[in-house]
């Protein structure tokens, strides 16, 4: 085992790490926004909104029901085929945002629906309207409930960015492959790549139970 070459490649590792984090951050940020919107809309009971709810449900079910890689391939191969040409970065951002949006929408939706109906009743009886109840009463409680699931999902998202390497996005794994070819040392290369993911994911994973405990701090035992 020989790690002596690692310092020489630090720059490359850091750049690739940055690309991974960039993709992760975009997926997390935009995915959360998208997921919140879709999740909240999914819980409306309005009859007029029914067609939208159906479309959203199909979106969520489909994207949660098949592998991320298939979704990447679909956009990466399918779009040019249909005449839409966008660069790899944009493709990747798009797919990852839609993917995480679907999962987060489901987390948000089930969170909202698990808030007892009594909260809504209390809100309406206090003459608050839907928006006020949703944003001031329901959502804060939902976030509290769903926080640990969300963080868990975010950790998974960081790891899933590795799949972007398959369609050519230049993140850790993709650069790992070229480093492996240059140094001829795949064993050490992939250990280093793994370490990069580990130092982000492991601390975050230790954070999850802490969040759970803090979120439940004022709940009655």
């Amino acid at each position: 085992m020989d790690f002596s070459w690692v310092p020489a490649y630090t720059g490359l590792f850091l750049k690739a790490f940055g690309m991974t984090l960039r993709l992760g951050a975009i997926a997390v940020f935009f995915g959360t926004v998208l997921g919140l919107v879709v999740g909240i809309l999914s819980t409306t009971k309005n009859r007029i909104l029914k067609p939208i709810r159906v479309i959203l449900k199909v979106y969520v079910e489909l994207l949660r029901g098949c592998p991320l890689l298939i979704q990447l391939f679909m956009v990466y191969f399918g779009f040019p085929y249909m005449g839409i040409n966008i660069d790899i970065s944009l493709t990747t951002f798009l797919v990852f945002t839609l993917y995480s949006g679907a999962y987060i929408a489901e987390i948000v939706r089930s969170g909202i629906e698990s808030i007892s109906v009594g909260q809504w009743e209390a809100g309406y009886s206090l003459d608050l309207n839907y928006m006020q109840i949703m944003f001031r009463i329901i959502l804060p409680q939902t976030i509290k409930l769903a926080l640990s699931s969300l963080v868990g999902f975010y950790i998974g998202m960081i790891k899933d960015t590795s799949l972007a390497s398959i369609i050519g996005y230049s993140e850790l794994v993709r650069n790992g492959q070229s480093i492996m070819n240059q140094t001829g040392r795949p064993f050490e290369t992939y250990i280093m790549v793994g370490v990069c993911y580990f130092i982000i994911c492991y601390p975050l994973s230790k954070l999850v139970p802490v969040i759970e405990r803090k979120a439940a701090r004022y709940d009655r035992a």
Binding site: K159, T161, I166, V173, P186, F187, V193, Y202
Partner: peptide, 22 residues
């Protein structure tokens, strides 16, 4: 902890490309 905090793809490459080095 290692298996849960590193991506599947990296684990796959490690076993398929890395381990043969040994």
């Amino acid at each position: 902890e290692i298996m849960r905090n590193t991506p599947l793809l990296v684990q796959l490459f490690f076993v398929f490309f890395g381990v043969p080095q040994l």
